[in-house]
């Protein structure tokens, strides 16, 4: 399975995503510069965390205008591969309209970096098929703007379509509506989540729970 990690100026988890695919999943992976446009030979695109364009103006607000984003949209429409946006990647996907809603500043206005517990709300997606129903995953967050928000109609739809994939378990660290930590699009090929599975994929880092998500992606092609 061929992975592509999109690099925006200011991305800072691009190398972490690249390394986990190459060293842990042992799959082919390439960096994709934000000014490129060709994506046809990839099976999974990763939009990494970081501060694209310094997150000036608003997180993800400038990155959505990068040349690559038109190709990302087409890639999702064709439905031949998967797209996962982590942290800043999730923020870019909502700004680009590939996922509904928006991510506001954390409720106490502070950046938070710590391990959190996630509950798998939908284990039947291509990103969670290796998880058990309601499984609890230990994966860290690191963001200043992870407070998921949408209008009531969208929230009803998200619930009805089982698009809410992960919620924060017990403690809601950032004030997200319905404790939402990650959602998927209707078609089921675009996932956005605030926690960082690439930071929880090796025992030496304290948790391997991120692999449930990454290995689900791998098995989706089989």
């Amino acid at each position: 399975m061929k992975f592509g990690v999109i690099v925006f100026p200011g991305s800072n988890c691009d190398q972490d995503c690249f390394n986990v695919v190459k060293d842990v999943l042992k799959q082919p992976v390439e960096y994709i510069w934000h000014a490129d446009t060709k994506l046809d030979h990839f099976d999974c695109l990763m939009l990494p965390g970081g501060f694209s364009y310094g997150d000036y103006l608003r997180t993800g607000a400038i990155a959505r205008f990068s040349p690559i984003m038109d190709s990302v949209k087409k890639f999702s429409e064709k439905g031949r591969g998967l797209i996962i946006g982590i942290c800043n990647g999730f923020q870019i996907l909502t700004e680009a309209g590939l996922l509904p809603g928006a991510l506001q500043r954390n409720k106490d206005l502070r950046f938070i970096c710590k391990p959190v517990e996630l509950k798998v709300q939908n284990h039947k997606t291509k990103f969670t098929k290796k998880c058990k129903p309601g499984q609890i995953l230990n994966i860290p967050i690191a963001h200043g703007e992870g407070n998921y928000t949408c209008d009531e109609k969208t929230l009803r739809e998200l619930k009805k379509n089982k698009q809410i994939v992960f919620t924060y378990h017990k403690e809601n660290p950032n004030g997200s509506m319905a404790s939402i930590a990650g959602i998927i699009n209707k078609k089921g090929n675009v996932l956005g989540l605030m926690p960082h599975p690439e930071r929880a994929s090796e025992a030496v880092l304290g948790s391997e729970d991120g692999l449930f998500i990454l290995r689900s992606i791998l098995s989706s092609r089989k």
Binding site: N12, N19, G49, V204, L205
Partner: peptide
């Protein structure tokens, strides 16, 4: 304080801050 700092990016942090020393793996 240290939860306001991203202390995990680059995926090397093996023993978190808050104890005696922080331990980093080298890939």
């Amino acid at each position: 304080v240290f939860e306001q700092y991203d202390h995990m990016v680059q995926t090397n942090t093996s023993v978190y801050p808050g104890g005696d020393a922080t331990v980093l793996r080298i890939k």
